[in-house]
Design a protein around this nucleic acid. Structure first.
Length: 424
RNA sequence: GUGGAUGUAGUUCAAUGGCAGAGCACCGGAUUGUGGUUCCGGGCGUUGUGGGUUCGAGUCCCAUCUUCCACCCCA
């Protein structure tokens, strides 16, 4: 006799990996709503969708996003395939789009190429509300023009989308981080400024001082804030062309009546950004309050191996959008409901129902029914709960006469109609 | 990666170390073909998981996982 350990029979309790989640059947319509709405807005601006793989060679990200950033240093899911090639689950969407733009020569016809995407991204980070290890981003990329109008248009697109969803409690902040020359000049200025305060800065800021002095600007430690009180801004270190560009972007936003504020402290986390940087902020969201961010990346295409072409884009997280919609008590699409709920009573009617319901569905109507429920009462209850517009009541009398009772569940009114009329 | 909380029924929450409960939701019924309201009835859930202390653990201790808050980072 074989003795089985009890554990052999007890199924392990599986759960989703930390920081990931299932989009459940009862919620998926919300996601569909967000994505459909975004697709519509993007198309209105004449952007076209791209779908890239969820993994790419790891050096695409290292070279573009920048190997000093946390995303690259600490947060990438890297793996090796059977031939030893090293890949990463994409931590962001811009690098893959630019890779595809270069690889497929999407700019071949000259001018501006306008692309959007929606899909999961992956970062190994400590989860929090609005921050996940697998999260869903949508975004756009406009490659091939340096014109400041494009910057404004990209901001306008996200603005339109958020408005379309009904959101009101968000702010648009813009800044310019300048070209690499301006940026370097500013970094030097910051180092000069902070040098005398090194002993007073917090440990994090000491690291920032070496790695990315701009980040000291938005440190939350009071002592650091105090030190930063009189710090010069990037805007003071923009060269003539970068400054002119920034002024144009702002004037276009004003013309389009998009409210915004200039926040000289905006620092983008990815190394490829140049000139325009912007964020959409929802201050009711807690720590993870950015509901969209982006900027210009005029050197990225060349960096990835293409012909030197300017570009700009943004990305936003769908999870934070859902939090924002909840926060403002806004409707998030609608749970799909059937037009008809079919109710069958009596032996003949029930037998004949399979065919009739099937024919209704062939004809394009959404119909629900439940053969397991027998009494009229329980089926009526089910019809009510399903949210159907009409109940179709079909008993043996109706079966004999080849008719059905159509009851409007909202008004309670009912009429007898022939099956031939129902299914032409 | 750092610090701090959390976990009990589908869900929101109760339960001095002593029989695991309630609201909502759900299912069934209120004399045989009409839903929503009302009334009646229906709860053994590995108390996240694994150890330990104890006569006895949802409750105390340790470990672990999850989620949450802040930092960090960012969407």
């Amino acid at each position: 006799m074989v003795q089985f350990n009890k554990e052999c029979f007890v199924a392990a309790k599986y759960q989703v990996p930390r920081g990931t989640f299932d989009i459940l059947p009862q919620d998926s319509y919300k996601w569909e709503y967000i994505m459909t709405t975004f697709r519509n807005v993007a198309k209105r601006y004449q952007y076209r969708e791209i779908v890239t793989p969820i993994f790419e060679t790891v050096d695409l990200f290292e070279r573009s996003v920048g190997d000093t950033s946390d995303i690259i240093q600490k947060e990438m899911y890297k793996f090796e395939d059977k031939k030893g090639r090293v890949f990463a689950l994409r931590p962001e969407g811009t690098a893959p789009v630019v890779r595809s733009y270069v690889e497929n020569n999407l700019g071949a016809n000259g001018g501006l190429t306008k692309i959007f995407y929606i899909g999961p991204m992956f970062r190994y980070d400590r989860p929090q509300a609005g921050r996940y290890r697998q999260f869903y981003q949508y975004g756009v990329e406009a490659i091939g023009s340096e014109h400041p109008y494009v910057d404004a248009e990209v901001i306008a697109l996200q603005y339109t989308f958020l408005k379309e969803l009904g959101l009101t409690k968000f702010e648009v902040e813009v800044n310019s981080v300048g070209c690499p020359e301006c940026s370097n000049a500013y970094n030097e200025a910051l180092k000069d400024y902070y040098q005398p305060f090194l002993k007073e800065l917090c440990p994090d800021c000491l690291i920032r001082f070496e790695k990315n002095p701009k980040r000291i600007l938005d440190c939350k430690v009071p002592a650091c804030k105090e030190i930063s009180k009189d710090v010069p801004t990037q805007l003071e270190y923009l060269d003539e062309k970068c400054l002119a560009h920034f002024e144009m972007v702002k004037s276009y936003l004003v013309e389009m009546k998009i409210p915004f504020t200039v926040n000289p402290h905006i620092v983008r986390g990815l190394d490829y950004y140049t000139r325009t940087a912007f964020e959409f902020i929802n201050r009711n969201l807690g720590a993870q309050n950015a509901i969209g961010g982006g900027g210009r990346y005029d050197k990225l295409v060349e960096q990835v191996g293409g012909k030197d072409s300017p570009g700009i884009g943004f990305a936003a997280g769908i999870e934070r959008l859902l939090l924002s919609l909840d926060n403002e008590n806004l409707p998030i699409g609608e749970q799909p409901k059937p037009l008809y709920y079919w109710i069958a009573i009596g032996e003949n009617a029930r037998k004949h129902s399979i065919l009739t319901v099937s024919e209704l569905r062939f004809s394009g109507y959404s119909v629900d029914f439940d053969l397991e429920k027998e009494s009229l009462k329980s089926q009526m209850k089910a019809a009510d709960k399903s949210g159907a517009k009409y109940a179709l009541i079909y008993g043996d009398d109706e079966y004999q006469k080849h008719v059905v009772i159509r009851k409007n569940l909202e008004s309670g009114k009912q009429e007898v109609i022939s099956l031939d009329e129902l299914i032409p």
